[in-house]
Design a protein around this nucleic acid. Structure first.
Lengths: 268, 268
DNA sequence: AAGTGGTCTAGACCACTCG
DNA sequence: GAGTGGTCTAGACCACTTG
């Protein structure tokens, strides 16, 4: 699928008939070389000009490929110098919006859930505010114990506006992935979430469900999830074991993605 | 600074002499209208074509402005439909790479630090691996109690390769911001970090330093920070009070930024 | 059919870095 | 001065959504 030009860099054979965009073919090819270690951290990637000439694409297309690598975090650009491979590992467990099922599968564990309760309740103050509803509106509340490889990891209480998915009881098996059901049955795709994490101690009920001692350290999560339009669709409160569950974050600086490159004029 | 065209949308007067890029002027103008509530969530933003015509810029420039708004998370695009304002609040406390000082100032609190110790030690296994050093190499270790508005929030132990900043003792006042000093004195700009968070209980030493009871819930942070090239420059272990410190995250889906828009061919 | 965003071209000028 | 990335133009074709 690729030809060797020179000693160090090889360029893909582009498929111009394919529906896959050219810049994406280029991005994937470079990405593969970085993953396989052919491009070492700190190494200069081919410049926009070079990619443009060798592959017979316009400079803007070459640029788009390199820029997407920068957005991924595997490369970075410096005006006047070039684009370089970053030493940061790509494959690390970075937390994103994902269900417990997705998260555990990504970590290589088999997830499942034990149903605690599945009922309809009035929203109450906190959930009403988070979901932009009146406190009298009704919610579907789903309480589950989350299990990974037979180890109970946490207790989770999920609230959804009843109006959003009135027949959820019939169409969803509570032992499976709620996100999958929301996506497939209702076309609701959760793309963002705000989350507050607190450190606490297990109550006696939590201790019983999670098979730990009362007073053990736990994480308390409060999460509100949104679809792309920013409409909140889910309010979750959960308690996870501190002894079996760790949080892994990658922190970046948001500003970089959205501000111009290099200039000295930048406003703060 | 702007003229009213029609009833709903107003367009900026662009300063073509300015060093500020055109797309950024447009982005900032729309952003301001979103912030001030003139563009409500769900509302359609002016299309690329319209911006292009009204402002006399090329479509690519208009597109770049809209795309940067999508990257910020305040808008989203749908092929064939338009670009819409997202309902998600922009100003929320989103965790980024930032020092304790920056974080507390952002939350409106006055930060300072009490020095516990400031010495040179051998790296040891864990820090050596994180910083890509041999275990015998020397580190500067800085232990501080972090205080916000006179309340002790956490104990922090920061390790830096001695070789990176051999005269840090002379050039840095441990009560101030380390990141500021690294940036101003050594030109070291930390741009990314990997972080692991665990839930635990306060030891007796931590309890004494933080003026809490032994066994109180705490967060345990382990953080490795990187400069843009991916070189690790800092390894931090810290313990923060569970009763006074909360973690706020915004989770998104990484994939969106780097994959093509709309196509059905997407590989996974 | 009209409007929209996604991709792409073939140029251009600039500011910056480096030898 | 040569090479690099940052910005910008004025077009183009396409796939998709909506009326």
């Amino acid at each position: 699928m690729s030809i060797q030009l020179g000693r160090e860099v090889d360029f893909p054979n582009l498929d111009r008939q394919s529906a896959v965009p050219l810049y994406y073919q280029i991005q994937q090819h470079i990405l593969q070389q970085i993953r396989s270690g052919q491009f070492k951290p700190g190494k200069t990637l081919p410049s926009e000009e070079v990619i443009s000439e060798r592959l017979g694409v316009s400079r803007m297309t070459a640029r788009q490929a390199l820029k997407s690598l920068c957005n991924l975090g595997v490369a970075y650009s410096q005006r006047g110098k070039g684009t370089f491979v970053s030493g940061i590992k790509l494959e690390k467990n970075v937390r994103q919006v994902q269900s417990f099922s997705e998260e555990m599968e990504a970590r290589g564990a088999r997830p499942h859930s034990k149903l605690v309760s599945f009922d309809v309740v009035p929203a109450g103050e906190e959930a009403a505010e988070a979901l932009h509803l009146a406190p009298e509106e009704k919610l579907i509340r789903l309480r589950r114990v989350r299990v990974a490889d037979s180890v109970p990891m946490g207790v989770e209480s999920t609230c959804l506006p009843l109006q959003l998915c009135p027949d959820l009881h019939e169409k969803f098996d509570p032992r499976t992935s709620l996100y999958r059901a929301l996506s497939e049955v209702y076309g609701i795709h959760i793309t963002q979430a705000d989350e507050v994490i607190e450190a606490g101690l297990a109550s006696s009920e939590e201790a019983r469900l999670l098979r730990i001692r009362k007073g053990s350290p736990v994480f308390l999560f409060t999460r509100t999830s949104y679809v792309e339009s920013g409409r909140p669709v889910e309010h979750v409160k959960s308690t996870f074991r501190g002894d079996r569950y760790k949080i892994t974050n990658r922190l970046g600086q948001l500003s970089k993605v959205n501000s111009p490159g290099g200039g000295k004029w930048t406003q703060g």
